[in-house]
Every structure is written in C-alpha cells, then in structure tokens.
C-alpha cells in the first residue's frame, strides 16, 4: 500500500518508463519499501501463502499495465484502496484459504464489495475509539475455522485528499472557493472526515487448515 501511494505520480504520469511497477522489479520495490518502513528484512517466503500473496500483487499490477501505459489518460484510479480491493478480489479467485479486505463501518463504505462481515463489524465497534490490532484465534472463514486479524489504519493526510473536506481535494487546489467541488478525483462525494477519525482497517483471515 505504501509503495502504491508513493508511486502515484509515476502511475498517473503520461509516458515514461514504468517498468518498476511490474514483475520482479515490483517485488524488489515492495521489499525495499518494507525495509525502509519497518527497519527489518523482508520476511522469508517460507510458506506458499506468502508466495501466493506476492504473486497476486504482481498479477494485479499486470492487470493494470495497459491502463498505466495509456498516455491519453491522466488519473488511472489505482490508489491504495483500489489496489487493496483488486488484490482481495484476486486472492478470492485462488481458493487458497486467504482473504484480505480493506473495510470500514458499513454506513460509510464506498465499495459494497468491501462491506464488513459480522466479525469485522463487531471488532470495529471494539477498536473504533481505541485503535489496536485485534487477533482472533477462533474465527471462521467461509464456514471453516480460521485465524483472523483486524489491523486499524490510522487516518493519514493522503486519505483526506478523497475522504476529507473540500480544502483537501486536489481538484480544488488553486481555484476560487466558489468553484470548489466536494466530488473527489475518484468520483465519490467526500465524507468530511478529519485526521482524528477512524480510518477503517485491513481484515486478514487465514483458514487454519492451510497452516497445519
């Protein structure tokens, strides 16, 4: 997600070499970003699920290659949340017992594909006022016993470009207030959230049988 955010200028630029967004170059960039962010080596790909996750990321980028290289289109729409949604959709086709969802409380969700399930809704109610990672050793996924984890995402300045208020909207930069719009660059109405609001989170579920 961090690399996708950092790569927005490259993704949306018209023309130029975008090779770093694809294949092995992309994986190397993910690893570099991880090392820089967490100050430790990228985890060993010791389990097929880890390999599958990286492969799915590469596949998502490849799915968007033509769009990324389409010089007649500026904003490509592959922001971190959309990348996460595409990755979740990709993983769901693989039937490997791994599910990732970028979700938020159901009244504020933009993409119905990301609506929280009962477990996610319950967890968010618990952590919404005091964000902390929530781990469940006895969860269920598609009717099977699973490990589940919800990691709240802190609201960041870049989130507000779409979810904040009109002064955060890059489409309004340099324009007179009378011309401002509350429709963000992705086409949705902005929610007027602030930096202290709950930013949703990443829900990760792994069927126990996969790890045994």
């Amino acid at each position: 997600m961090t690399f996708i955010f950092k790569s927005q200028p490259l993704i949306n630029q018209r023309g130029g070499d975008k090779a770093v967004l694809f294949g092995d170059d992309f994986i190397n960039n993910i690893k570099v970003t991880y090392r820089a962010k967490y100050g430790e080596e990228f985890p060993e790909l010791s389990h097929f699920l880890k390999k599958m996750l990286l492969q799915a990321m590469v596949e998502v980028m490849e799915d968007n290659r033509v769009l990324f290289n389409d010089d007649e289109i500026g904003f490509k729409g592959i922001i971190p949340a959309i990348f996460a949604a595409q990755l979740a959709a990709k993983l769901s086709t693989k039937g490997v017992g791994l599910k990732i969802k970028f979700t938020r409380t159901k009244d504020d969700i933009r993409n119905v594909m990301n609506l929280p399930d009962e477990w996610e809704e319950m967890v968010m109610q618990k952590v919404i006022n005091k964000p902390a990672v929530y781990f469940d050793n006895n969860g269920m996924l598609d009717g099977n016993p699973a490990y589940r984890q919800f990691t709240p995402l802190p609201m960041a300045a870049y989130c507000l470009k779409c979810h904040g208020s009109m002064e955060h909207n890059p489409l309004n930069f340099g324009k007179d207030k009378s011309q401002w719009t509350n429709i963000d660059m992705t086409g949705f109405e902005m929610e007027n959230w602030t930096i202290s609001d709950f930013g949703g989170g990443v829900s990760l579920s792994i069927e126990k049988s996969v790890l045994e």
Partner: peptide
C-alpha cells in the same frame, strides 16, 4: 481454472470512469 478474466466497461477515453464501484456515475 487457468485464470479469471474480469468484466468491465469500455469508454471513449475522454469519458473514462476508472473506478467502477462509483456506480452513481
């Protein structure tokens, strides 16, 4: 399955909608 193609919409470039979950558009 070999792979999973995803359905979509094709637009003239000037009318392009990049994010199709924005169905209000």
């Amino acid at each position: 399955p070999l792979f999973h193609p995803v359905p979509g919409l094709c637009f003239k470039k000037e009318n392009f909608i990049p994010i199709l979950s924005a169905t209000h558009r």
